[in-house]
Design a protein around this nucleic acid. Structure first.
Lengths: 202, 202
DNA sequence: AGCGAACTAGACCGATCGGTCAAGAAGCTT
DNA sequence: AAGCTTCTTGACCGATCGGTCTAGTTCGCT
């Protein structure tokens, strides 16, 4: 849905997106109706279909924006750092912290991954994230500081650990994100095969 | 729904469950209607509600049975093995292989984990699995072969890795489950902090 | 003030959903 | 064959869904 939006229009749209994120995360995509959303915002149904051509389009826009935001965060955190192992470490921490600060979005991304309608929309974004990590892992292997194994598998495993531990310890138990990030990072370092002697540059 | 089932009744019920698993896994729980299921099996709608009091009950039964089956598999594989590290290793392999052989069920469990209606139904079963792994990890720590860290977090991380790598490499790319199991096991060994010198009993 | 574009309200629509029910067929037991 | 339980059919129901549409209001610009 391509529309020329005024300031007011942009604000209204943001209002709808914001409410929808909360509603989808809390009650699920399928069980949240368009009527729920417009009622929650306090507008008529016509408003929704002025800004979005369908419920599905809204959801995909949410997914896309989320993934863009998460990657931006990760890129910002590792900017200027040269050492690939440090980049991996910072990338993991950035992922966990982003998940912690955007728990609703984490839930939606996780849901979308398992829903055939949205899996393709999420797939590309995730691939980009994995590619980023893969690059650093390959550098680490080349420098002889990470034992050679399939870099993509390692990247995927790290993402899974970050996601899962965030869900249990931060989303469900409200523990300190920094501590969880440490735990995730340490598990991943080990998983990559970085024994202590590997951690320093040769 | 408690009913006295004849042989024929049990077969009919199994037929419904089997078709429902495939349909839910392929098209999603919400987008699969009761009408889809009974049409697929080729029976009237009354049949469904003779065996199940609701669509939700059917799904929960599927989840429960799946988790029971997966744990049984895991227990069988580690039976008689004393060494806690070996038990962890065999447990991981059993999980990956079960996921590989029951891809539809893996999908459903993953979906249910992220759906508030079913999260509680899955939660208990997952907790049991994590408790099992936790016990072995604690033994390993006590024996000084695993560095001391939160055993539950480690168990959760291992489960996440098994799940994710199974999804990508087996479910999506049809790679050899045994090879994937090796990859998962190796990542997890590292993640637990088992450096090579730890792998032997002191 | 006037005018077109941006925005909003909410009644309305056809489709589909999970679930019910009355009626009867099929299978056991005696 | 009778009679009870198990099983099956499919029309039917009220509710709710995503989406449409018309009539109207508000805004920005000249």
């Amino acid at each position: 849905m391509q529309r020329q939006l005024t300031q007011r229009g942009q604000e209204r749209k943001a209002q709808l997106v914001s409410f929808a994120i909360k509603a989808f995360a809390q009650n699920g995509y399928h069980t949240t109706s368009v009527a729920d959303i417009v009622d929650g915002v306090g507008v008529g149904k016509g408003v929704f279909y002025w800004y979005f051509s369908s419920k599905e389009e809204l959801f995909i826009e949410i997914l896309r924006t989320s993934q863009r935001d998460m990657r931006r965060r990760q890129q910002r955190e590792i900017r200027g750092v040269e050492d690939p192992l440090d980049r991996i470490d910072l990338g993991i921490r950035a992922a966990v912290l982003w998940f912690a600060e955007n728990d609703d979005l984490r839930r939606l991304l996780e849901f979308a991954r398992n829903e055939s309608t949205f899996a393709s929309a999420v797939h590309h974004g995730q691939k980009v994230l994995v590619e980023d990590a893969r690059t650093h892992i390959e550098e680490g292997i080349k420098e002889g500081r990470i034992p050679p194994r399939d870099p993509e598998a390692l990247a995927l495993a790290m993402l899974a650990v970050a996601n899962q531990l965030t869900q249990v310890y931060i989303s469900e138990r409200n523990e300190d994100p920094e501590v969880v990030a440490d735990t995730v990072a340490e598990f991943c370092r080990g998983g990559l095969g970085m024994s202590p002697e590997f951690r320093q540059r040769p």
